[in-house]
């Protein structure tokens, strides 16, 4: 499997976005707030990262703006598994 597509199984961008949500890795986060500042609908992504919680806000578009802008690679898409992962 090519490395560029190795982390998540979905093969298209659309599939990846529709089947996932944003997950922070708090150990990398320095709380700079670039994620929150760039969220087009005003979700306080930084707060989720501080608390180590998945961004489960139902308004999240999974547009990827926060994932792309984070200068510390804190955020990534992960598959949504509401039965196991919600609220973690």
């Amino acid at each position: 499997m090519p490395i560029s597509t190795s982390i998540s199984s979905p093969t298209t961008r659309h599939e990846a976005l529709a089947s996932g949500h944003v997950v922070p890795e708090s150990a990398r986060c320095v709380q700079c707030g670039i994620c929150t500042f760039n969220c087009p609908i005003g979700i306080d992504v930084r707060r989720y990262a501080r608390l180590g919680e998945h961004i489960t806000n139902p308004r999240c578009l999974t547009c990827g703006e926060c994932v792309q802008r984070c200068p510390r690679c804190v955020l990534r898409f992960d598959r949504l598994n509401i039965f196991k992962e919600r609220g973690k």
Binding site: Q31, C32, G33, I34, T36, F37, R46, R50, P71
Partner: peptide
């Protein structure tokens, strides 16, 4: 990349 007020956690 960030405005000043954004730095307050």
């Amino acid at each position: 990349e960030l405005p000043e007020k954004q730095l307050y956690v």
